[in-house]
């Protein structure tokens, strides 16, 4: 939500900008001015205000990086060398040479598949538990301290335990994603259920909704914004966890790709993979935020 509102306010401040100063002329020349000049002006402003700053900062960063790593004996490659070294990896994300030697697309897809499974489990179980816990003050008081402690356990700390339990690397990786991302979902959902205004409960009481009707007509829709806050944090954490888990369990996946590249000293490949991971994580976050925006209708606007 914060990102969405920030975006809305920036466009809002840009859009009405040209109007106050130029009111008189605009009224006089309205039909010809509007489509051509004024819109071009607005687009230029938008470009200068929103798109230009990140481009400049990225450019500067690359430039400084290039300067710092260009001297002989530099331990990390400069951007130009990263691109030339990893060119094959960048231009052809779909190659498949068998084994674990696959293109970026396949590596990322594999990792995303794991996140999809682990995170889906976490979402279903987390929302269900969160709703249950939110209904009961007793359960909240009893379980909250446990959750608060468990949620700070780093993803990798769960891995030995799950390997011991499952005796197989694949379900262990899924479990690590599950256990890492479930806490914020539980906690946010239960807080959302507790924060349902008494007014809504009164309305439900007056029209005598049954337990089940209260759940799906009042509790669930009223909690949706909280649930999606939890899901957003959760998907970010699960993407963190997958990379760490794959480094240890091996096989195809963007996490082990990095580890494999390190073992064969392909530093440039690692840097490209980092950029991919960052972009995918960003897109996952935006995806959940967008779904949340559509599902929660006007609730968040209150």
């Amino acid at each position: 939500m914060p990102a969405a509102t920030a975006h809305a306010t920036t466009t809002a401040t840009v859009a009405p900008g040209p109007v106050p100063g130029a009111t008189a002329e605009i009224v006089a020349f309205r039909p010809p001015m509007r489509p051509a000049l004024q819109r071009a002006g607005e687009m230029a402003r938008h470009f200068a205000g929103v798109i230009l700053p990140p481009l400049i900062v990225i450019g500067l960063t690359l430039f400084v990086w290039q300067l710092l790593c260009s001297e002989p004996g530099a331990r990390l490659p400069p951007p130009t060398k990263v691109v030339s070294d990893a060119w094959d990896f960048i231009v052809d994300p779909f190659y498949d040479n068998g084994g674990i030697d696959k293109g970026a697309f396949w590596q990322i897809t594999k990792s995303l598949g794991r996140v999809g499974i682990g995170f889906s489990f976490a979402a279903v179980v987390g929302i269900a538990l969160g709703v249950l816990i939110g209904q009961s003050t007793w359960a909240m008081r009893g379980l909250d301290p446990i959750f608060q402690v468990l949620r700070t356990v780093p993803p990798l700390a769960w891995l030995p335990l799950s390997l011991a339990g499952f005796r197989d690397s694949h379900p262990s990786a899924l479990f690590v994603i599950f256990i890492t991302s479930i806490w914020p979902i539980i906690i946010n959902t239960s807080v959302g259920v507790r924060n349902i205004p008494q007014d809504y409960r009164n309305v439900a009481a007056v029209i005598r909704l049954s337990w089940w009707e209260v759940f799906y007509k009042i509790t669930l829709p009223a909690t949706v914004p909280y649930i999606f806050t939890g899901l957003r944090i959760g998907i970010g954490l699960s993407w963190l966890a997958i990379v760490a888990a794959e480094m240890l369990i091996g096989g195809v996946g963007i996490g082990f790709f990095i580890w494999d590249a390190w073992n064969s000293s392909r530093i440039s490949d690692i840097i490209v993979a980092l950029v991919y991971i960052g972009i995918v994580g960003f897109l996952l976050d935006k995806l959940i935020a967008t779904i949340g925006h559509f599902v929660s209708h006007g609730v968040a606007a209150q």
């Binding site: 007014d199 809504y200 009164n202 309305v203 009223a222 949706v224 609730v299």
Partner: peptide, 9 residues
């Protein structure tokens, strides 16, 4: 109700 208590969704 005083504060209308409409369900916002």
């Amino acid at each position: 109700f005083q504060n209308h208590s409409l369900l916002p969704w």
